[in-house]
Computed example of a mutant assay.
Amino acid sequence: MARIICQQLAPQIADLAGNRRLSVEAIRAAVQGGADVVVLPELVTSGYVFESREEAASVAITPSHRLFAEWALAAARGPSVVVGGFCERGADGLLYNSAAMVDGSGVRAVYRKTHLWAREKLVFEPGAGAPPVLDTQVGRLGVLVCYDLEFPEMTRTLALMGADLIVVPTNWPLLERPPAERPPEVIIAMAAARTNRVFVACCDRVGVERGQEWTAGTAIIDQSGWVISTTCEAGPATADVDLALARRKGWSDLNDVLGDRRPELYSALSAKQTGSAQPPLTVSDRTASLSEGPARTG
C-alpha cells in the first residue's frame, strides 16, 4: 500500500522565502504522517496572480535552487516522493509554470505545463515536452499541471506510458456551482481516472490572492473514478491505496480500457482545430477579456 498526502496550502504571492518555509514544513508534516507520495499545489513557491512578467521573474528559480535540496532532505526521511509546482526560470531565460518531482536523491524530473490558462499566457511559455512517467519505490508516477488535466489526450498519454498514479498540482479559482455538486475540475479528474483505470491526486490551494478566491478542491481519486479523500480546509487529504490496481485495465473478461481502443479511427485528434469558425484571440484580445472577470481555472 502507498499513502498519498496532498497538502492544501495558501502560498503568498511573490514571497519566495515564506513559501519555501511553508512548503518544507508541509513536506515534513506529511512524511511524519507516513506519506509515500506528497503533493503540493501549483506554483506553491511563488503564488499565482502575478501583476506582470517582471514580478514572476523576481521569484523564478531553477531546478538547482537550494529549495529543492530542502525538499529532498525532507523527502529522504520517508523515504517519500514529492511533487510540487514552481515558477521556473529556464536556461533560455524564459519563464515556465512547472512541477518538480523530488525524492531523497534530488530532483528526478521537471515538467513544464503544456496548456496555459488565461493570464498565464502573458507570463509563461508553454512547455514543449511530453509529461514524464517515473518509476518510484511505490509505483509509476505521471505528472500534469492544472489545466492540462482538462485535455483527455494528456491523461490517456500518461496511462499508455504506464502511469499508476497521475499527480496534478493545481490552482482552481472558485466558481459558482449548483448545491451539492463537486467542482467541475474534480469531475473531470474522476472521469480521467475511470476511463484510464488510474489513480489521480489533485492538490489545490486555499486562501485569497489579490481578490481571487480558490476552490480548495483537493481530491484523491481511485482507479474506478471515485473520490476517496478530500478536504475543504488548509491541511492534508490522505488516502492509502494499492497502486498495482491501476495495472488491471479490464472492466470485464471481454473489455480492456486500453486494449479496446481503435487508434486507426482517431486520426482527427491529432489535427489542430479551434472548435469554431472564429479566429483565435490575440494577446490584446485576451488581455481585454481578462479584465472582465477572474479566470475560470488554472
Results as ranks from 00 to 15, higher is better:
residue 279 P to Q: 12
residue 221 I to T: 02
residue 148 D to Q: 06
residue 34 G to Q: 03
residue 239 A to F: 10
residue 114 T to Q: 11
residue 241 V to K: 00
residue 35 A to D: 07
residue 21 R to F: 02
residue 281 L to N: 01
residue 72 A to S: 15
residue 155 T to V: 10
residue 280 P to A: 07
residue 129 G to Q: 14
residue 196 N to W: 08
residue 130 A to C: 03
residue 127 G to T: 12
residue 100 A to I: 04
residue 214 W to F: 15
residue 41 P to T: 12
residue 100 A to H: 08
residue 43 L to R: 14
residue 36 D to W: 03
residue 261 R to D: 09
residue 11 P to R: 06
residue 269 L to G: 07
residue 284 S to C: 06
residue 113 K to M: 13
residue 72 A to R: 10
residue 139 G to R: 09
residue 204 D to Y: 15
residue 97 N to A: 15
residue 205 R to C: 14
residue 290 L to P: 00
residue 31 V to Q: 05
residue 93 G to H: 06
residue 2 A to P: 08
residue 135 D to N: 05
residue 87 C to F: 07
residue 283 V to C: 04
residue 116 L to G: 10
residue 211 G to T: 00
residue 261 R to L: 13
residue 259 G to P: 07
residue 247 R to K: 11
residue 122 L to Q: 10
residue 9 L to S: 15
residue 194 R to Q: 14
residue 90 G to Q: 04
residue 74 A to C: 09
residue 75 A to P: 11
residue 59 V to E: 04
residue 34 G to E: 01
residue 4 I to C: 01
residue 68 F to V: 03
residue 51 E to F: 09
residue 206 V to L: 02
residue 243 L to N: 07
residue 262 R to N: 03
residue 165 L to S: 03
residue 174 L to Y: 08
residue 113 K to G: 13
residue 136 T to F: 13
residue 80 S to H: 05
residue 128 A to L: 14
residue 152 P to G: 12
residue 200 V to K: 00
residue 185 E to P: 03
residue 25 E to W: 05
residue 238 T to K: 11
residue 229 S to R: 07
residue 63 P to N: 10
